[in-house]
């Protein structure tokens, strides 16, 4: 039975959309600094990029806090269960209108592919971008800084790493924007991220999941989901 379920809490939606706006700003201004596009003017692009970067870091701090206090970080623990099935679905099943192999629940919102990609973003791409960006922002020429550690000889390494991160992030955004159309209906994922409510399996099923997570076994959640 399909039911409207409140799946994205207000913080999650706020976090998601603020992040979307900030990353959009960072991409536009970043590629202007990189001289791919001209939009704000170079000086402004640098200024806006820095402001957006600070905002992003503040947001990340809040998001990390939220993830740990709510236990939501467990959502990203990778699993091999269903990974192949999920790939098969995107490569074949989706064209035959086959059902999603992974069922979305409040406590397990991500399919195995999403888990992998988001984990990669969170532990690799974003930290690398943030770190290289901070070095970019705060590196000083040898005589310029009282913090000796930041007296690096050249920004080149950090600049290039930062650029790699930017390309990966843009590729992610393109894929992400497309994949949100692969929900139950074309717009159901988008609606869910706006309203918080999504049509999901019935309440009973959720109840079972909840019991499982309280037992603390991640695998058992996946098992339950797979079985269901």
């Amino acid at each position: 039975m399909i039911k409207q379920v409140y799946i994205y809490k207000s913080f999650e939606r706020f976090w998601h959309w603020t992040q979307a706006v900030i990353i959009f700003m960072l991409v536009i201004t970043g590629f202007e600094i990189h001289r791919f596009i001209t939009f704000f003017g170079y000086g402004n692009a640098v200024r806006y990029h820095n402001i957006a970067a600070y905002s992003f870091i503040v947001l990340i701090v809040f998001a990390i806090f939220w993830h740990f206090t709510t236990g939501a970080w467990r959502q990203y623990l990778p699993t091999r269960k269903n990974l192949k099935a999920q790939m098969d679905y995107y490569l074949l099943g989706i064209f035959r209108n086959a059902p999603h192999p992974t069922k979305k629940t409040v406590l397990s919102k991500l399919n195995p592919l999403q888990k992998l990609v988001y984990l990669g973003l969170k532990v690799l791409v974003i930290p690398v971008i943030v770190f290289s960006g901070l070095m970019y922002m705060f590196y000083r020429y040898p005589q310029g800084n009282t913090i000796r550690v930041l007296n690096i000889q050249s920004v080149e390494v950090f600049a290039i790493i930062h650029t790699i991160g930017a390309f990966l992030l843009v590729a992610f955004i393109i894929a992400h924007l497309y994949l949100i159309t692969t929900g139950l209906t074309i717009t159901s994922n988008l609606k869910a991220m706006i309203t918080g409510y999504e049509e999901l399996e019935d309440e009973e099923q959720l109840q079972i999941d909840k019991n499982d997570i309280s037992n603390g076994s991640e695998d058992s959640i996946s098992d339950t989901i797979t079985k269901s």
Binding site: H34, R35, Y42, V155, E156, A159, I160, T163, I164
Partner: peptide, 11 residues
């Protein structure tokens, strides 16, 4: 390396 002028051709 100067931002806006320099880049890695490979990257």
């Amino acid at each position: 390396y100067m931002p806006g002028r320099d880049y890695s051709r490979f990257v």
